[in-house]
């Protein structure tokens, strides 16, 4: 091949590539996917966003969900109510290990199905022991409760001194004034330090695109809670913030067939949770770690 021909070929190739590239670039530059990805990349931390930026982010999430999951959702963000601090109590004597709370939680919070992304984990222990390390979360007998077994559901304990918040290098997770530890899924870098820091195993990592059936999708979502999460971020229980900040009860409470869970505002002296805290012997898991959880267990 002589140099002339080589130059000619080179020029031709470059021109065709250039033309094709510029056309595709133009196409991709205007494609909603790229602009949405760029928007997400350039988005600020949730606490630093102006109301206008928040509105744009919510619209972007609705667009992305329509594109990825083919579902129309409404994404909002509800601020915490003043003079409210949430807490939950669980009656261990009444828990029968049916895992209905897990099912309702997965549905309500749009968790990926079939993975390990359940926010609540129900541990089965032998009656009379408190060794959580020997407990079995994978129990699957034909019927529950099994004789001699006790069940301890564990989710996020919404600690007052949360180690996950301290561990996060980019402050993508923080504690809200109403006591809920939330995550900005768009700010999370997926380093998983918080999963290691959490002594309760309450945080889960989204390894892949969450598998959510289209006919079983919760369309009412919140930015900090149950909106469909992107790949490679952490997710956790938020006490169903999208429901509780609007006055409803969390999904696990409504699904529990025995009414073992009690939820309320601890600052309200007439609330159910205050009655439990004042009249029952309550305890918290791993009290000695100094995390000061807002999730109480009791019996009787």
């Amino acid at each position: 091949m002589n140099p002339k021909r080589r130059t000619l070929l080179k020029g031709l190739a470059l021109t065709t590539t250039g033309v094709a590239a510029s056309a595709s670039a133009l196409e991709t530059m205007t494609s909603p996917r790229l602009t949405d990805n760029l928007d997400r990349l350039l988005q600020k931390h949730f606490k630093k966003m102006s109301p206008q930026e928040v509105r744009l982010a919510l619209q972007r999430i609705e667009r992305e969900t329509q594109r990825i999951h083919d579902i129309r959702i409404t994404c909002t963000t509800t601020p915490p109510q003043p003079n409210v601090k949430f807490a939950q109590a669980l009656n261990l004597a009444m828990c029968k290990g049916t895992r209905r709370c897990v099912e309702a939680c997965v549905r309500e919070n749009n968790c990926g199905r079939g993975g390990h992304l359940e926010n609540i984990r129900v541990l089965a222990t032998n009656q009379g022991t408190t060794h959580l390390s020997q407990a079995n979360p994978y129990y699957n007998p034909p019927q529950v409760p099994e004789p001699g077994q006790k069940y301890i559901p564990i989710g996020c304990q919404q600690c007052d001194n949360p180690p996950c918040v301290q561990a996060c290098p980019v402050q993508a997770t923080w504690k809200e004034p109403d006591g809920i530890v939330v995550i900005d899924y768009d700010w999370c870098i997926g380093c998983r330090y918080c999963t290691i820091a959490c002594p309760y195993g309450a945080r889960h990592f989204n390894w892949g695109q969450p598998n959510i059936p289209t006919d079983d999708f919760q369309p009412v979502t919140d930015y900090l809670a149950n909106r469909p999460r992107p790949t490679g971020v952490i997710e956790k229980c938020t006490f169903c913030l999208q429901r509780t900040r609007n006055g409803s009860l969390p999904a696990c409470l409504e699904a529990c067939p025995t009414g073992a869970r009690i939820f309320g505002n601890v600052l309200d002296p007439n609330s159910e949770i205050r009655y439990v805290l004042e009249n029952k012997s309550v305890f918290r898991l791993k009290e000695e770690m100094g995390t000061s959880p807002n999730f109480w267990y009791f019996t009787g």
Binding site: T98, R99, H116, E118, Y139, P141, Q143, V144
Partner: peptide
């Protein structure tokens, strides 16, 4: 007694 929901993976 009732049938439990599916265990985590």
């Amino acid at each position: 007694p009732v049938v439990p929901s599916s265990p985590p993976a």
